[in-house]
C-alpha cells in the first residue's frame, strides 16, 4: 500500500494541477477551453468527462503498452480513446441531456484533445497502469480546474449567474446601472482570462519564466 502512494506517485498526480498544468504551462487543449466555458455547468461536465477519459485511456494503453507494435501505436491509442469518448457521450445523452446539447460537438472532439494524446504518448506508453491512472486523473483535473476558473468569471460577469442561479440580475443592481459584459460570452475573453491565469502563475513561480535574452 505504501508504494501506491509513494512520493513519486504523488508528484505524478499533483504536478499537472500546479506547475505542470496541461493548459497554462503546456498550453494544450486551448480550443475546448474557449468553446465550453461560457457557462459553469458545461465546463464542469467537460472537465469531468476529460478526466474520466484520460484516466481510463491511460490505464488501457498502459496495460497494452508492451504488445502494441510501435508503428501503429497512434491508431491503437485513437481506437481506445474513441471507444471511451463514445461511452461518455452516450452516458451524457442518457443522464444529462441538456448539458450534452450545450456541449454539442465538443464531447466528440475530446478525441482530438491534445492533452489525451500527449499523456498517452508521453506517459502511458512508458509507465505502469497505476502511475498512468494517477497521471490521467491529475491531468484531467488540471484541465478541469482551469476550465472551471475561466467559466466562473465568464458566467458571473457575462450572464450574471452561476450554475444557472441568479447572482447579479436583480433590480437594485440594475438600477445603479450595472450591465452584464457581453464580451465575456465571446471566446476572445476566455483567451484573455486564460492569459491572466498564466500571467499570475508565472509571476508566482519564477522557475516557469524563460530566460529573457
Amino acid at each position: 500500500m505504501g508504494q501506491l502512494f509513494s512520493k513519486k506517485n504523488k508528484e505524478v498526480f499533483s504536478a499537472p494541477l500546479g506547475i505542470d498544468n496541461p493548459v497554462t504551462v503546456q498550453v494544450l487543449g486551448i480550443c475546448s477551453a474557449l468553446a465550453v466555458t461560457a457557462k459553469l455547468e458545461p465546463a464542469i461536465v467537460m472537465g469531468l468527462s476529460v478526466t474520466v477519459i484520460t484516466a481510463f485511456a491511460n490505464v488501457v494503453i498502459s496495460l497494452l503498452r508492451k504488445t502494441i507494435p510501435n508503428r501503429i501505436r497512434i491508431i491503437v491509442q485513437l481506437v481506445v480513446v474513441a471507444a471511451l469518448v463514445t461511452i461518455v457521450s452516450e452516458i451524457l445523452k442518457a443522464f444529462a441531456y441538456d448539458v450534452s446539447v450545450q456541449l454539442s460537438v465538443y464531447v466528440g472532439l475530446i478525441i482530438t484533445n491534445c492533452i489525451l494524446m500527449g499523456r498517452l504518448e508521453a506517459f502511458a506508453m512508458q509507465n505502469g497502469p497505476w502511475e498512468s491512472f494517477l497521471d490521467g486523473v491529475g491531468n484531467g483535473l488540471g484541465y478541469a480546474k482551469i476550465l472551471v476558473i475561466v467559466a466562473f468569471f465568464r458566467e458571473l460577469f457575462g450572464s450574471g449567474t452561476l450554475l444557472g442561479f441568479n447572482i447579479l440580475n436583480y433590480e437594485p443592481i440594475r438600477n445603479i446601472g450595472y450591465v452584464n459584459n457581453g464580451l465575456m460570452l465571446m471566446p476572445p475573453m476566455a483567451l484573455i482570462i486564460v492569459a491572466c491565469i498564466i500571467w499570475y502563475q508565472r509571476a508566482r513561480h519564477k522557475e516557469l519564466q524563460e530566460e529573457s535574452n
Partner: peptide, 10 residues
C-alpha cells in the same frame, strides 16, 4: 472595441 462588443446596448 471593448465597449462595442461588451456593452452593445450602451
Amino acid at each position: 472595441a471593448f465597449l462595442f462588443f461588451a456593452y452593445p446596448t450602451k
